[in-house]
Amino acid sequence: MALLALEGIEAAYGASQALFGVDLALGAGEVVALMGRNGMGKTTTIRVACGMMPARAGRVTFEGRDITRWPAHRVARLGVGLVPEGRRCFAPLTVEENLLAAARPGPWDRASVAELFPRLAERRDQRAASLSGGEQQMLAIGRALMTNPRLLILDEATEGLAPVVRQEIWRAIARLKAETGLALLVVDKSLKELARVADRAVILERGRTVWQGGMADLGRDVTDRYLGV
């Protein structure tokens, strides 16, 4: 049984429809890359999966349980952690407070987050607003991990970061894959890095799933056609 499954999802922002039929399935411990050009519906898909936006049609299930109409906080409690686009830490709180505010019991705690991102430990009493972009991103990932999710969704986690910092984030993602049984749904522009870490890929085009398959099967023809790379 899939951990998270989206079947025939349609969604709209008011009158303008963004998703016309998104299918996506992700197994426990699996790393799936959600790809597509800008404006193809990746973030909307994630918002629907997390309960932050209602689906107009289709079904979202988590371990077979229908969570289509669940509010975001219940989806999060079920075990879906989100690292939203654009970092978005709780700016007025310190690093430590950001982590504490999200904490739920489980193997991830402040110590294990600090082990994954030593820089956060150094900055623990600093306010989130005063961190660099990369540090804020680490904090956003750390905060999502503190909820002890079974699925972690990363929406453009490396966007706008310096190459060195990107490498640090990718290393952390690779570690999460290798050392924990955490399932990951990753949205990112870097095909090279995704190829290294993801097991499978799902490609969206104009709000529809147009290609699904193993990362190894993702040939030039597909990437040329849908990703424009």
């Binding site: 997390c50 309960g51 932050m52 509010p71 975001a72 906080h73 219940r74 999060a76 409690r77 952690g81 989100l82 939203p84 978005r88 709780f90 700016a91 007025p92 709180l93 407070e97 950001n98 504490l100 505010a101 999200a102 739920r104 905060r143 999502a144 503190m146 909820t147």
Partner: peptide, 20 residues
């Protein structure tokens, strides 16, 4: 209290960590 302060800033972000 931390979640309360976080919700003051942005309620949606708080929901994504499982707090209503």
């Amino acid at each position: 209290g931390l979640a309360l302060q976080a919700a003051r800033q942005n309620a949606e972000r708080v929901e994504t960590v499982g707090i209503r």
